[in-house]
Computed example of a mutant assay.
Amino acid sequence: MISLSPQAALWFLVPVAVVSFVAAFNDLKRMKLPNAVVMALAAIYVVMGPFLLPFDQYLWGFAHAAVMYVVALFAYAYLGVGAGDGKFAVAMSMFIPFSDLGAVLMLFAAFLLGAFVAHRIARAIPAIRRATPDWVSWEHKKFPMGLALTGTMVTYLVLAAVIRAL
């Protein structure tokens, strides 16, 4: 079974965390995940992947993205998932070997619930609302799913680096 090595996870972690932070901030502030952020995440994989991953695993990442693209289109068309969220999930999928899919889905479910509750609590606190008056997500009926996606991605890399290194 192919897994992400601890070394690859560590090398990916810093640039992915930076891009993920920008994505989460944009989703909270504007309820949008810009294409530039999605492209930056994909570029990290495309540029660093050949140096960090076995070549077959690197190529499988593109296959994962193609499958996730179909899933994201379905989710956008029929489930109300935002287009930016779907595109970000496609870029994320390149980093995740198939053997880790179950763990990542459980991680995403936990982050989705946690981020939803945290967002709803935060928007109910007047001091937070005053500090971020121009954030669209406070008034929007939908939830900024980029928050859960980015948390999942960064946590997955941290766990892949720490747990597999033990």
Rank of each mutant, 00 (worst) to 15 (best):
M1E: 12
L4P: 00
S5T: 15
S5H: 04
S5C: 12
Q7V: 15
L10S: 06
L13V: 09
L13D: 10
V18P: 04
F21I: 13
F21K: 04
N26I: 04
N26A: 06
M31S: 00
K32N: 05
N35S: 10
V38P: 02
A42V: 13
A42R: 04
A43E: 03
I44Y: 00
I44Q: 01
Y45F: 15
Y45T: 01
M48E: 09
P50M: 06
F51G: 05
L53H: 04
L53K: 11
F55D: 11
D56N: 15
W60M: 14
F62I: 03
F62M: 02
A63G: 11
H64G: 08
A66G: 02
A66W: 04
M68F: 12
M68L: 13
M68G: 09
Y69A: 12
F74H: 12
A75E: 11
A75Q: 05
A77V: 07
L79A: 15
V81W: 14
G82P: 02
G82L: 08
K87Y: 11
F88Y: 14
A89I: 00
A89E: 02
V90T: 04
M92K: 02
S93M: 07
M94L: 07
P97D: 00
D100M: 00
M106Q: 02
F111K: 03
L113Y: 11
G114F: 09
V117K: 06
R120Q: 13
I121G: 08
I121P: 01
A122N: 03
R129Q: 08
R129K: 15
A131G: 10
W138C: 05
E139W: 13
H140R: 12
K141Q: 12
K142D: 13
F143D: 07
P144Q: 12
P144D: 03
G146Y: 13
T150W: 03
G151E: 10
T152F: 07
T152G: 09
M153K: 14
M153G: 10
V154I: 08
L157P: 00
V162N: 01
R164D: 01
R164S: 03
L166R: 08
